[in-house]
């Protein structure tokens, strides 16, 4: 995000159509790669779209840690005189692996897959998915999110009331 947009609170706004298109791209990726999970997320740690075995995994924590992973290794990249952050991060486990690839400067895809799936397959298919999402992102406009549409006064009142109830019930 460039500084002017950040200052004005502007960010990419995904329409329902664009959400559906990303869902389609991730589903296609999962079908062809046999990976278990794919999360399209922003580098602030927010998941945008996730597909696959999402019910069995803690998506929010995974995304927050993956964003942190990018951030930490960006400093490593800096120290070895690489101008930007690393574009791909790969973690190999005993049975499962994760592959992170950046999508432009603000987003990334986190992929979880079985070790028996060849990394090369994941890399090639992830590359196609990234290209497709980048094309889509270029058509979207940056605008101030209309939070007031989402959070009216009644919503705000109920929210604080609900938080109070949760705290009292502890």
């Amino acid at each position: 995000m460039d500084l002017e947009n950040r200052k004005n609170g502007k960010r990419l706004v995904f329409s329902e159509d664009s959400f559906q298109r990303i869902i389609q791209i991730l589903d296609e990726f999962l079908n062809r790669s046999q990976a278990r999970l794919a999360i399209f997320a922003d580098l602030n740690g927010y998941p945008v779209v996730y597909r696959g075995e999402a019910d069995t995994m803690d998506i929010s924590s995974l995304t927050a840690l993956a964003a942190g992973d990018f951030a930490a290794t960006a400093e490593m990249a800096n120290l070895i005189s690489e101008e930007s952050h690393f574009r791909f991060l790969y973690h190999e486990g005993v049975s499962r692996c994760s592959y992170l690839c950046s999508v432009g400067n603000e987003y990334f895809i986190l992929i979880v897959f079985e070790k028996k799936v060849a990394l090369g397959v994941i890399r090639v298919l992830a590359h196609y998915a990234v290209e497709k999402i980048l094309q889509l992102i270029q058509t979207l406009k940056k605008q101030s999110e209309e939070t007031k549409k989402f959070l009216d006064f009644e919503f705000r009142d109920i929210l604080t009331q609900r938080l109070d109830e949760s705290i009292r019930a502890r």
Binding site: G45, Y46, S60, S61, A64, L65, G68, A72, F150, E154, F155, I158, L159, R162, L163, S166
Partner: peptide
């Protein structure tokens, strides 16, 4: 070392779901 992370979610309000990420 890096951060602690905890997510709070207090259910749906008027069909919408607020979540809080505490770091």
């Amino acid at each position: 070392l890096y951060f602690d992370f905890l997510e709070l979610s207090i259910g749906r309000i008027k069909g919408k779901k607020p979540r809080f990420h505490l770091y």
